[in-house]
Design a protein around this nucleic acid. Structure first.
Lengths: 183, 183
DNA sequence: ACGAGCATGTAAGAGGTTACATGATTAT
DNA sequence: ATAATCATGTAACCTCTTACATGCTCGT
């Protein structure tokens, strides 16, 4: 056996909700799903074809104009069954964060090293932007209060992402403040 | 260009601090470094050989007994230089968490679905064990207070990991409590 | 007319996992 | 003696990214 093809389940999850084109999926990966999972289009398109061959999804071509044809994919019953099976399976062990900021920090053993300040500034900047984006999405998607029960999973991952980024940023700022005080 | 070989820098970071065998590195990946980065031994051993050919690290064989020979690797000056260069480079963009619990949650749109409870229990159990382990390590490595300044990076990643797991667990428990109240 | 975004692909190759292998040493 | 752990490797295979490619459509 080899590493589990999670992408397949992610695609299935999206396509069992609604019919999407490869390009739509790409857009999803740029939005909050991208906070959890993302793949390049060069991986997505071939995977969609494989999944159609295995009858997990079904395609439907829509002619937008003479020269423009879109291919929409939608999960089949077989696909829905496989997705459900995955949702019931025990979740995987915790994976390494693979955060290269933290890795770099680990290798700077001298607390006085100026590189720590540079890295802190960069990391803060990146995560501030991320938090800003998540907050914006939360406001946009669930601003009306009404939807919360409609799309429970979507709400949860946004809430979780915002919490995670908020706490992490607080920690980063605290570390930054400690350093300024000492110098 | 292709996907960056971060493993190389991780190995370099470890081997510029002290001489280690492939097996020692494996052990490190099972400890708190594994919280950030991990690779299987079948990837580590060949990588070490490649790095030695490129003179980033140097090997030294130690005969433990007649039949037992260990190979220790240590970063060279060239290796140290490359590591330093990496530490100065801007950090990468934020990567998706690839947490399959959250992904599954996202695809369960019905808040009443019992699978949410099962997933919550599993995720809580996994992260409780992780937090327990990190706390144990913190006590073991920095219990005497003295070391904190010695190994700043090491302290930071432990602190960060503990904070992250603590807050995440609080969130998970809160979600669990909300569900019980409603049913 | 032209640039931004829509839309879909292939190819090369690096990164990473699982399985297969082998043998030594130490503790029970 | 035998199981666990130390110690090091190779082979097969999958996952994933980067780069290369092409053409359409819409707004300005």
């Amino acid at each position: 056996m080899s590493k589990k093809n999670i992408l397949r389940y992610v695609l299935l999850g999206l396509l069992c909700k609604e019919a999407l084109t490869g390009y739509d999926i790409r857009k999803h990966f740029e939005q909050e799903i991208g906070d959890i999972w993302s793949s390049s289009h060069s991986q997505v398109y071939p995977e969609l074809k494989k999944m159609e061959q295995e009858e997990l999804i079904q395609s439907k071509t829509v002619t937008e104009s003479e020269k423009m044809v879109k291919t929409y994919y939608k999960g089949t019953e077989k696909g829905q069954a496989l997705l459900n099976q995955w949702l019931y399976e025990p979740i995987e062990a915790i994976q390494p964060t693979r955060n290269d900021f933290t890795m770099k920090l680990f290798f700077i053993s001298d607390p006085e090293d100026v590189r720590v300040d540079i890295l802190l500034r960069e990391e803060i900047s990146l995560h501030q932007e991320k938090l800003r984006y998540l907050n914006e999405r939360m406001k946009k998607v669930f601003g009306e209060e009404a939807q919360k029960k409609q799309d429970y999973g979507h709400y949860l991952i946004l809430e979780q992402g915002i919490m995670r980024e908020t706490v992490y940023l607080e920690w980063l700022h605290r570390k930054q403040a400690e350093r300024i005080k000492q110098s």
